[in-house]
Amino acid sequence: MWTWFHKLGSPKWFYDISGKLLNFMAPVAALLLIVGAIWGLLYAPADFRQGNSYRIIYIHVPVSVLSLSGYYIMAIAGAIHLIWKMKLAEIAMRSAARMGAGLTFLALVTGSIWGKPTWGTWWVWDARITSELVLLFLYLGIIALYEAYDNKVSASRACAVLALVGTVNIPIIYKSVDWWYSLHQPATIKLTQKSSIDPSMFYPLLIMIVGFYFFYGVALMLNMRTEVLINERKTRWVQDIVERA
């Protein structure tokens, strides 16, 4: 029953399949992001209260959503690595940490830039923003922790434990605007109710969210493929790739 799962952990299998997936996903990601950005910047109507500054939503919301869901990818990969000692899961975890750090940084910076014209401040220590900053430190902490160890076996194990411990922060970030009084407004896109954004503004947002998910997949796989090559450099199939390159 577990054979498929172990096959999934085969580096060569991953390298081959991800190469095929990239050929399809990379153009889709580029297309969605370009269409979404042009639609959001040029064709979506201005907001009745915020005017044009709300156009930052088309990047702020997708990168923030991914900074959270990317954490689950990292934590699950970390758990798989701890339980099955699967090398590929460790690579996925570290690649996801790198992606997460970049996306969380973007979420904070775009939020800050958006805050200035709407709230009147670049930064405020409210629950949502502070917990998102903790998320950035978690991602950076995992990257730094791995670099700090000379023994990479213990390094990856320590990173996986830190990733699992940090999981508790994700629902806190998500629910912070409902649990406490904060400057940040509650979620606009709701799963169970009607979203509180006009359809003419929502379609480009949806395109951007899907586009950023594709981008995440593409960049994550690129990262993992490079790491797989480095890891498997002694094997025949990697040396063949080097020869052909």
Binding site: P45, A46, D47, F48, R49, Q50, Y54, I57, T118, W119, G120, T121, V124, L183, Q185, P186, A187, T188, S196, I197, D198, S200, M201
Partner: peptide, 18 residues
């Protein structure tokens, strides 16, 4: 000493708001 605007989660074009 400082006043910050808190906006809500609703986004719509001005015509819809009117």
């Amino acid at each position: 000493s400082e006043v910050l605007a808190k906006h809500d989660e609703n986004y719509m074009p001005p015509e819809v708001a009117d």
